[in-house]
Amino acid sequence: MAGHLAVKELRLIYSSEGQADVHAFGPLSFSVAPGEFVSIVGPSGCGKSSLLECVSGLMRPSSGEVYLDGQLIVDQVHPDVGMVFQQDASFPWLTVADNIAFGLRYGRDHVPAKKIRFLVEEALEQVGLTEFANHYPSQLSGGMRQRVSMARTLVMRPQLLLLDEPFASLDLQTRLLMGEELLQLWRQSGASVLLITHSLEEAVMLSDRVLVMSARPGLLRHELVTGWSRDRHTDITTHPDFSAHVNALWAVLRDEAITAMRTQA
């Protein structure tokens, strides 16, 4: 299994003319094993999303290195990396099926039309949108649009899946269902997952390992190994360890959240 992510001494400092530099995060070092599901939680404004953008290659970090399967991928988008965002990223002018096919059609590799059709149908089925293949995003609910983004990413067969609070704008029930689906897709795809979330329950429920970031400048404060089996479901929340894990995370995060609130106020 591929998808081994190694982040070394990554640091981001925003500097803009005439203003004091803002130290967003770092130096941060961590790794994600092939097929592992890792979440990062932290107070708002700790640079979680920027960290994910630096890992994806969308943003250039101030210093440090990111390796995917031993290959340096800093400052460039690697073909084996997929990313799903919090905001709706579906293209409103395309149907669901065309949205999912987009990366295959206009991405790096030339994929034959026949294969695209097959892959899109498969992806539609995976996320339960087969009936909505010819609908436009404006005709779908928020949860369904996030599924479109998920399918569009997974159809590219990423080795590493980066998720930037993908369920944050959804209601609680939809979030739980999407979490369930995400676990299933993760098992099927065999990809490694790095999830950013501000929900501790979500992090504990989904992950093999949870990393806690500090208030700005974001540093790694704590690491929690959940010890769940790979074929877990959302009913893991009833497991005796579940609330203990959530409480342990909150104990660390509480102080950081207070610091973050004070510095932002």
């Binding site: 969308l58 988008v77 990313m83 905001q87 709706d88 990223a89 987009f102 206009y106 790096r108 990413t153």
Partner: peptide, 25 residues
């Protein structure tokens, strides 16, 4: 929305395809 630009970049869309298939529509 910047998220559309980011998605296109992650999917490895070329500059020309980006202009024609994302910006224009």
């Amino acid at each position: 929305p910047t998220v559309l630009n980011k998605s296109a970049r992650i999917m490895g869309v070329s500059h020309f395809s980006f202009l024609l298939r994302v910006q224009l529509p």
